Amino acid sequence: MSTSVRVHAEEAGAAHPGYVVRPATRSDVDGARSVMLDTVYGDLRSGYVPRWHADIIDPEGVYLAPPRHTLLVAEYEGEVVATAGVRSHGPAHPPNPRWLAERYPSGGTAQLCRVYVRAEHRRRGLARRLVADLLDFAAADGGYRAAYLHTDPSVPGAEPFWRSLGRVVCDERELPGGGQGIVHFELPMPAV
C-alpha cells in the first residue's frame, strides 16, 4: 500500500484533537473490521452479505496488499473509530446498470468504499477528512480517471453528505422498478 496519503491537519484533527488519520496497517485490521461490521449490521441493517461485503472479512488482501488500493483509519485513544477505502474496481453489471459499469470501468475508476464512522465520533469532520485523503491518494496514483461511489439513501445523513461532495450520476430510485434503490456519485479528482 502506498504511503502517499497527505494528511489534512487543518481539518477535523485540528478542530478535534486526539484523532489520527493514517493508512491502515496489519495491526488495524481487526479494529477496522469491527467498525465495518458494526456499520453493516447497525446503520445499513443488511448484516453481512458475502457477495457485497467480502472485503470486510479480508481487508488486508483487498486494501493493504494491492498497490493501487488503500484503507485509511481514524484512530482515537488507540482505537479505530472510522474507516475509508479505495479500490480499483468500478460498479459491476449486474446488479448496476450496464451504462454505469461502462462509464466507470475497473482499473480506471477509484471506487471509494467503507467510509464509516462510529456513531459517537460523527459530526467532527472525520468522514470529510477521510474522503479528501482518499481522493489525494487516487490522484497521486496517476492511473485513475474518475472517483466513484454509491450509497444507500435510507441511511440517515448519507445522501446529503455525498451530495455536498460530489454529483449524482444515477439515482436508482428514479429508474423503472427502482433498481436497487441506491444513489451513485462521482467526486471531483484533485489536481496533482
Rank of each mutant, 00 (worst) to 15 (best):
G90K: 14
A92I: 09
G90F: 11
G78V: 01
L64F: 09
V80T: 14
A92S: 13
H89E: 15
A74K: 07
H69D: 05
L72E: 02
L71G: 05
H89I: 12
P94I: 04
S88P: 15
G78M: 03
P66V: 02
A82F: 00
A82W: 00
G78T: 02
E77C: 10
E75S: 04
S88D: 15
V86I: 14
T83Q: 08
E75C: 04
P95M: 09
P94W: 08
G78S: 06
T70A: 03
L64D: 06
A92C: 10
A92F: 06
H93R: 03
H69S: 11
G78E: 02
L71R: 05
S88E: 15
V80G: 10
H93G: 03
A82D: 01
A65D: 11
A65V: 15
L72K: 04
G78L: 02
P66F: 08
P66N: 12
V81L: 01
P67R: 14
L72V: 01
V73Q: 09
A82N: 06
A84M: 03
T70Q: 02
G90R: 14
R87C: 05
A82Y: 01
G85I: 00
V81M: 05
V73G: 10
E75I: 05
G90P: 12
H93N: 13
P94N: 09
H69R: 03
T70P: 00
T70N: 04
